[in-house]
Structure formats: C-alpha cells, structure tokens
Amino acid sequence: MTNNNSFRNPTLSAKIGMVILSIFIFCAIFAPIIAPFGEAESVGKTWLGPSSKFWLGTDNIGRDMLSRVIFGARMTLGVAAICTCLSFLIGVTMGLLAAVAGKIFDQVLSRFVDLMLSIPILVFALMILSMFGSSLPTLIITIGILDSFRVFRLARAIAVDVVVKEFVEVARLRGEGYWWIMRHEVLPNSLPPMIAELGLRFCFNFLFVASLSFLGIGIQPPFADWGGMVRESGRAISFGIAAPLWPALAIGLTTISVNMIVDWILSINARPSGASAEM
C-alpha cells in the first residue's frame, strides 16, 4: 500500500483523472489549432446530427458543437482557475492573519465570515451580479470573494493549530512581524492539507461558473463556455437532439477527474509519515 501512495505512483483512478484533465487543458491552450471550425462561425444548417464533418452535430445557429466544446474549455476552465486562485489568495491570507494577529481580529473576521455564509452562495451571487452586471472581471471578483469565505474557514482552522507550536513562539520572541511569521512559519506548515482543498474548491467554482452561465448571468456570448452552451441548446432536448448533453458531459468529466486526483493527493497526505492527516 505504501508504495502505491507515493507521488511517483498515482493510483489508477488518479491516472485516468490526469489524462482526462490534460486533454481538456490541451484543448484549452491550443483551441484555435485543434478546432475544425471557428468559435462563433456558422458553418452548416441548424441542429444537424453527428456526422463525419460535424462530429457532435451543430447547434441552434449552425455552429459546430465540437469546435464550441473545444473553445469552451478555455473560458470555463480559465475563469474557474482564476476564481480559485483569487479566492485562495484572499482566503489563505486572511485565514493565516486571523490565526496570527490575535483574538479580537480573529473574532471580528470569523463572525463576519459566518454572516456572509448565512446566505446561500448562489442567491448571493445572483444578487450581486444583477446589480453590477456580469462582465468577466465582475464575475471573477464576485465568485473569488464569495468562495474565499470558505477557504478562510479552513485556512484559519489549520493555521490555529500551527500557531501554538514552539517554533512560532520562538519567531514571535525573536521579534518577527506578523507578515514574516505567516510567510515563513505558518504557511509552509499549513500547505499540505490546503493543496487537496485547492482541487475541491476548483471543482466547486467550476460547477458554480457553469451554473451561473447556464442561468444566463455568467460568461456572456459570443464566448463559448460549457454552461452557456447547455443554456443555448437546452430546449432542443425535447425534440430528441442530444446537443446540450455534450458540453454538460465535458463539465461532469472535468469535475470527476479533478475529484479522482484529489482523492489520491488526500491518500498521500493521510500517510503516517505525511505532514498532516487533517480533514
């Protein structure tokens, strides 16, 4: 078992996950080269079935589904990745600061986060995006901030355990500042459990962006994105056209493969010799 759990030898499901995810990332980066047709180009009749020319058929205004799915990887994966980075940047910084900077600061921040989490995140996002409009920067900042509250909770919980260790105490006695302690003592010791969380938060944000786009207030046309594509072709399913299933399948495959990789990373962390079995 211990041999299986090293970074050299991923489990079978983790390997499958990595392969699927790499394919999607490859599509995202090289979309203009791989895609047989353009992103917003009408190339045939509407609602054509799968054929040798259009592998996945065409959509409501005659665009090639396969090309749209390939281009969609860019927007959907890209936006979710940026949101996750932003949310970790805010969440981890504030979480570690709350653990290091003393009780009052911690209490104020924690109660504030409790309050922000008392409204369902989707309802919150709907409210904000309706008033600010859903341009790409607004979308990313909104999701990033809303998600950072959850990251904050975890980061704080982990950091609170690290802060009471002797080496942090020594650093404090040496007269190091909050920022130095956070960066050099607390952060490295909180990272291992945070890495698995990064994958899970990515899945959540990814599904969240897709849902918002599906509701029509996420990524806006003419950009292809998987959630929006399901929205555009959704009604066709009543007529037996499978078009909305392809982008939806791409969304599902992505989250499942990230989950498989996260499971494997978690099993490494849970090793007796590993840094932490937290979570």
Binding site: C203, L207, A210, S211, F214, G227, V230, G234, I237, S238, F239, G240, A242, P244, L245, A248, L249, I251, G252, T255, I256, N259
Partner: peptide, 29 residues
C-alpha cells in the same frame, strides 16, 4: 460521487432525454 460531481442540469437533461423524449413517460416541461 458521480451524482455530486456532475452539474444539476446534466442529470436533468439526461432524465429528460431518456424519460421524456425517448420513452415519453413524463412531460419535459
């Protein structure tokens, strides 16, 4: 794990595709 990982609308559209369009047991709207 499968049900949690896929978006809500994916499950919804598959159910519509199978039970409303192909089998015709339930209305799709």
């Amino acid at each position: 794990l499968g049900a949690i990982s896929v978006p809500e609308f994916f499950i919804a559209y598959i159910l519509i595709f199978v039970f409303a369009t192909k089998l015709g047991w339930f209305p799709s709207l």
